[in-house]
């Protein structure tokens, strides 16, 4: 069965996604792609610049929240939009990734919504024979 990379999830107060991945690394990459899909049309983002992210946390769920919050921070503070995510390392609470994208340009990117934080709500990474899956609700 082929699953999508992610789906948009409905939630009363805010909005979320369900992310999938054949591997845990892919799950993290798809969750990030889902985040930027909520923010803008990702096809309008060109992979012009590369940004490295490295972080540590206690478990994969905390790491996933921290990873998405790092991307939200980079958008707010440095106006960076990303579309390509290569997760280089992901084990024992250690994440290393390369993200490609470009600086926000109001003439070519339409911001659909301001996403302000990834939350722990409904966050549980599960695995079955198809791979990994989790919901992520964002505060907007």
């Amino acid at each position: 069965m082929v699953k999508r990379d992610f789906e948009v999830l409905d939630h009363t107060a805010d909005i979320g996604i369900v992310a999938y991945g054949a591997t845990i690394k892919q799950l993290f990459a798809n969750a990030a792609l889902g985040l930027f899909d909520l923010i803008t049309d990702t096809s309008s983002i060109e992979p012009k610049i590369e940004h490295q992210i490295e972080m540590h946390d206690s478990d994969n769920e905390s790491l996933l929240v921290a990873w998405l919050n790092e991307l939200i921070y980079l958008l707010d503070a440095e106006q960076l939009l990303f579309k390509n995510f290569e997760i280089k390392t992901l084990s024992k609470g250690h994440l290393k990734a390369t993200c490609k994208g470009e600086k926000f340009d109001s003439t070519k990117h339409r911001i659909k919504r301001e996403v302000k934080a990834a939350t722990y709500y409904m966050m549980k990474i599960t695995a079955d024979r198809h791979g990994y899956k989790t919901s992520i609700i964002f505060d907007i």
């Binding site: 921070y73 707010d76 503070a77 440095e78 919504r113 301001e114 907007i140």
Partner: peptide, 17 residues
């Protein structure tokens, strides 16, 4: 530092939502 970097450009804005 992250909060500082997010805070600087957004002072004096209404925001969205």
């Amino acid at each position: 530092d992250k909060a500082v970097k997010r805070g600087i450009p957004q002072m004096g804005t209404l925001g969205s939502g």
